[in-house]
């Protein structure tokens, strides 16, 4: 118990003193995970909508695939992206390994299926309600998919947040493709892992508390933005 109290004190001290290195680490975490979430949304939302409204061979297989990929272990994704980006791998020439870009790629691979699968569920419900109306008005399936994405924009923020939560909390993938390089690819989760290995458990826990605070803050911002937008445009 005293250890937890100690780390909470430490966490508030770290925040209060505005530790520069901590700020850089938090900043990089946000930068990488928000980029990955944005990319995942850009890819996953249209894909999920397509799976929801489309009827094409292989659709069921794809749905099962994406639902399954939601549970993909980060370490496996990390390894996969590592092998792709490694100098000996197919994309080695790009020299992206151990850069934040590599981390964004890995987290996108991790998060995109989640966004796609959640979008699929949301848009399927929408499709159920709107299908006849939209077809009657003359919308093609693709057009209907696009319309329903816009129509479900408020529900879809939840999918985005779920993806962001997964991205910012994972350590396995960014550790492997980022290398946890001090000042370059060290993010909150890899710092926590590092401090744990150093046996500095109170500091590790304090960083954990800060991570949760950051995630809560992002969620709070999203929540109020959504409320405001729904009031205005809902």
């Amino acid at each position: 118990m005293s250890e937890i109290a100690q780390s909470l004190t430490l966490a508030s001290e770290l925040i209060a003193t505005g530790d520069n290195r901590l700020a850089a680490i938090v900043g990089l975490s946000l930068q990488v995970s928000l980029s990955a979430t944005l990319l995942s949304c850009a890819l996953g939302i249209p894909l999920g909508a397509l799976l929801a409204v489309g009827r094409f061979p292989g659709r069921h297989a794809l749905i099962i695939l994406f639902n399954g990929l939601m549970g993909l272990p980060p370490v496996v994704v990390g390894l996969l992206v590592y092998l792709l980006l490694s100098r000996a791998g197919p994309l080695g020439e790009l020299g992206l390994l151990f850069t934040p870009t590599a981390m964004v790629i890995a987290q996108t691979v991790l998060v995109m299926p989640i966004i796609a699968a959640l979008t699929l569920q949301v848009i399927e419900d929408e499709w159920h309600e709107y299908r006849e109306q939209l077809r009657s008005l003359g919308a093609s399936r693709l057009r209907a998919g696009r319309t329903l994405i816009w129509n479900a924009r408020f529900s879809l923020t939840t999918a985005g947040l779920a993806g962001f939560g997964r991205a910012i909390a994972e350590v396995g993938a960014v550790m492997i493709v980022g290398g946890n390089i001090d000042g370059v690819t060290r993010v909150m989760t890899t710092t926590i892992a590092l401090e744990t290995s150093k046996g500095d458990l109170p500091l590790a826990l304090a960083l954990g508390a800060i991570l949760i605070t950051v995630v809560l803050l992002v969620n709070a911002v999203a929540f109020f933005l959504r409320q405001w937008a729904e009031k205005r445009w809902g």
Partner: peptide
């Protein structure tokens, strides 16, 4: 329409890549 989206997506990727990689400078 979807082609335009694909173009936007690619530019988004490039933008993010530059933004997330101070390493390249």
């Amino acid at each position: 329409m979807w082609a335009r989206y694909a173009l936007r997506l690619i530019s988004l990727c490039l933008g993010l890549a530059c933004w997330a990689s101070p390493a390249w400078s």
